[in-house]
Every structure is written in C-alpha cells, then in structure tokens.
Design a protein around this nucleic acid. Structure first.
Lengths: 123, 123
DNA sequence: TTGCACTGACTACAAACGTAATCCATACTG
DNA sequence: CAGTATGGATTACGTTTGTAGTCAGTGCAA
C-alpha cells in the first residue's frame, strides 16, 4: 500500500470536485471551481505526477479521475489535523465537528442510527 | 474582533507548548519541542509579528506567552479544515468519521445529547 | 575588567505553493 | 487547406514555510 502523498489546499479543491464526479476535463474542473483554467491545469498536472489522479485521453483532451479514494484521504488528513489541533483526542474533535456542522433532521436521524449501531456493537 | 492570523504547522507546534504553559523562554520552548533553538526563535518571531503571542523582557531574554486563546484557534481551524477536507459533502464524511471512530458508551451518550440539541435547535 | 557565552535581530536559502503566461501541437471552421 | 482556437507541457515568479546561520549587544565568570 503506497502512502498517500500530501496534497495542498488548492489541490484539495481540485480533488473534491473529482471525488464528487469523475471523470472530468480540465475545463470542467476549472468551471466547477470557478478558477483560472491555467491554474487548474497546473494543479491537475501536479496531482497526476503524485499519482493522486489518473487521466485518459479523449480526442485532444484528457479526462481526469481520482485515483485514490476520498475516504483514505479524509482519514489521513483527519488524523493529522486532530493530532495537531486537538492533540490526538479524536472524540472531542468529533464532538466539535458535529456541533459545528449544519445538518438536516434526516441527517441527524441517520447519525443517531449510526450511534445506535455503535452502542450495540459495544465498545 | 481582529481576525486570527493563519499559523503554519511548525507554528502550531510552538503555540501548543505555549498554550500548555506560559510564559516560557525561547530556550524552554525549543527544549519542549526538541527542535533547534534558532528555528524556534524564528517561529517565535513570526508569531510575535502576527500578534499571536506576546513577550515581556526578563533580564536579557524574553518570556513568551500566547496572546490568543487556544479555543479560538481550534474553532477557526476546525471550520476551515471541515470545509477543505469534507468539501461540500460535509455530513456524509462526518458520518463516515463517526462510524470509524472508536468511542466509549459515555462518549456515545454525549454525542447523542449533542444531536438532541441540534434536533431541538434546528427547524 | 575583559572576554566569552547567550540572546534576540537580521539575513539566508531551498523547497513548496498559488497563480499564471508562454510555447507548441492539433482539431475544428470556413 | 489555411487559420484559429483550444488543450496540454513547460516555464515563470513572487510568497510562504521550514530550517538555520551570522551579527551585534550584554550580563556573568574569572
């Protein structure tokens, strides 16, 4: 298992749109982000070099797709963030997140169900 | 209310030791972090310039203290982290996060309470 | 009292970043 | 078929970051 290469803030933006929907052309990504196409191209290139995304030719353009599941990145980034900001205390961090995230009633319900499962499973 | 200036990873390390206990001399901070004193001095200087910490002279050396409460940084950093990493899809990612975090029954209870509050407040 | 040991101020510097512009090949338009 | 527009590759460039070295002042040891 290759280690996930670190990606920067701007690169996260790009990956987020690809994780949301792949594949996309550079132009589509740029539009989704409302950022300069050249800038986005640079970022796509850097991400490709890191093998975080993959592309396939389609006519004269490339179709980019995420090559590493978002889950994995979220997990690793969360760990390092929590480590840095919360000193490794995961649960307090989680509570903070839940508190500060706006959710619909359905989502709250869903979360309750998840908690029920966890309680069930026991520790 | 002045906006909290962004601080880098290395700067977080420094602030963490100051938040843990202030005031401290540059040397003490360097020792706590086990990092080169010169490096730490640079970081302290940058943080001072950003007014994130304050210092007071004591003989020929400075005693540094955090000038902005940790709480505030945690709040802001969390917000930007959630935004960046969870992207638009905050809640699904959060659910995954909850699912994959090991918690005690008490913590689960605590989280339930938080959800109750949210359900209450919402709609 | 004299020089050294520390300290902060200033300077250095390469790598990473964000943001693009330029260059070059090629696909579509007229 | 020629010219133009478009897309990727390469190059650019100021700023930020991590990491530390150099310089200059000063309090303490001898």
């Amino acid at each position: 298992m290759t280690r996930t290469p670190p990606i920067t803030d701007a690169e996260w933006d790009v990956m987020n749109v690809l994780w949301e929907k792949s594949p996309r052309t550079a132009m589509e990504v740029a539009e989704a982000l409302d950022r300069h196409p050249k800038t986005v191209k640079t970022l796509l290139g850097r991400l490709a070099r890191k093998n975080v995304l993959r592309y396939r030719e389609e006519g004269n353009r490339y179709l980019y797709s995420a090559a590493i599941p978002r889950q994995r990145y979220v997990r690793e980034e969360s760990a390092s963030f929590i480590d840095r900001v919360f000193g490794g205390e995961t649960t307090p961090a989680l509570m903070h997140f839940v508190r500060s995230t706006r959710m619909t009633q359905e989502e709250i319900e869903e979360l309750r169900r998840i908690l029920d499962e966890k309680a069930e499973a026991g520790s």
